[in-house]
Design a protein around this nucleic acid. Sequence first.
DNA 1: TTTTTGCATTTCGTATTCATAATTACACAC
DNA 2: GTGTGTAATTATGAATACGAAATGCAAAAA
Lengths: 241, 241
Amino acid sequence: MTSDAATQPVFRRKSLHEELIDAIREQIVDGRLTPGTKVPEKDLCAQYGVSRTPLREALKVLATDGLLTLEANRGAWVSKITQEDLDEVFPVMGALEALSGELACKHITDAEIRKVRTLHNEMVKYYQKRDLANYFAVNQRIHEAILAAARNDTLSSQYRSLATRVRRARYVANMTEERWAQATDEHEQIMQCLEARDGLRLSVVLKSHLENKLETVRQWLKDNDLATSTSQLPASKTSSR
Amino acid sequence: MTSDAATQPVFRRKSLHEELIDAIREQIVDGRLTPGTKVPEKDLCAQYGVSRTPLREALKVLATDGLLTLEANRGAWVSKITQEDLDEVFPVMGALEALSGELACKHITDAEIRKVRTLHNEMVKYYQKRDLANYFAVNQRIHEAILAAARNDTLSSQYRSLATRVRRARYVANMTEERWAQATDEHEQIMQCLEARDGLRLSVVLKSHLENKLETVRQWLKDNDLATSTSQLPASKTSSR
DNA sequence: TTTTTGCATTTCGTATTCATAATTACACAC
DNA sequence: GTGTGTAATTATGAATACGAAATGCAAAAA
């Protein structure tokens, strides 16, 4: 849906490989490309109506992002999410999110705070309706808003890169009733810190918020094991870069 | 020195584009490729004896690392280091380094601590001899050792990516006498935290250590302006990814 | 029956070719 | 002499082609 092979090629702004990066990243994140399986280079070429050259350029970039693993002469594989990956990635995200909170309190405008408050209230409504999908969607927009308020593109891109890697897991991670209540409460605290512009406390809250989230995902992973359930198994190691 | 176009192609382990990534990254970091100038695609092909395909794959990866900026139909440019870049990158590095200290205290072995102490003493000697080059070299090894002790590959690679981006600046940043003394003192504190396995305090020390370092580099940049001094100027924006 | 060896097929990595966009050079008009 | 428009040149982006490596299967040997 992102890209159309038949878009007017006359006024294309992004280069092919850039469009492919986004398109394939989405396929990985939303699960159309299954973790642990081989990337069907040929199929993707056909699907997007491009040759192998721009496709392979895109694969290389996605590999540096940790979404794919390249094996010499054996092609690209969709990275699996292992327990160890999560244990590695979440602390780093925690550190980055803590920083984002700290910086956001310094730079955020009153208008932005009101905007986040609106999102927050919206999210609480979805919580009360037990509408997980929308809850997640708004939740993500809140974290994005805080990130934007931090006014640090480097931070944003680093954070997003990691978030994308684990999003596959977070998406599906069903929460227990208690955990959901806890998360919503944590978000109320986040709001309060933001409105008080208490950067130090916000960074602490965000960090522990993420630690709790890790626990949820970890629990979920224990049940539906993304690491071993899928069919094709390359002799791949944990992806780093 | 890094790579040789005439290496026995029979027993090559890395693929061409991987070798090129490392080789070109080094050229950028050590200044053979000047910030703000165009990447001489043709020359590099000739230099390494490869065709454009693997080279361009490498350029795309380096662009996601922020070392290059790609402009549509205008090729790749070596990213300039601006004041704003530093102000963005250093806080993120600070957060990551703080985390590395925290984790290192949890996981580091006694043998590793002794190893770092050895490096530290060596560094102090170079300080006393006012040997900046070697001081920097050992300094970097200390931070690498702490990073390794954190036992988190994701953290390591993220940190290294940022460090590489600013290394060009840090390398040349001559320190004032006071700043140098202060930095060395901070390193003594780092050692003490590590030996006491006081993760919390280490993270604080590392963070402020990096903040001070930023101040040094910022000062230096004000004098020798990497941002505007170089010749060719593309209409490029700040690189993020 | 099991294992191993050799061949065929597929797919990957790289080089080469082609098309198109951008830059430069030059001529002509003002 | 300066500025603009057009043509020539150059370089970039993408497609195709080719050699090499890996995989799968079958046949032969143990």
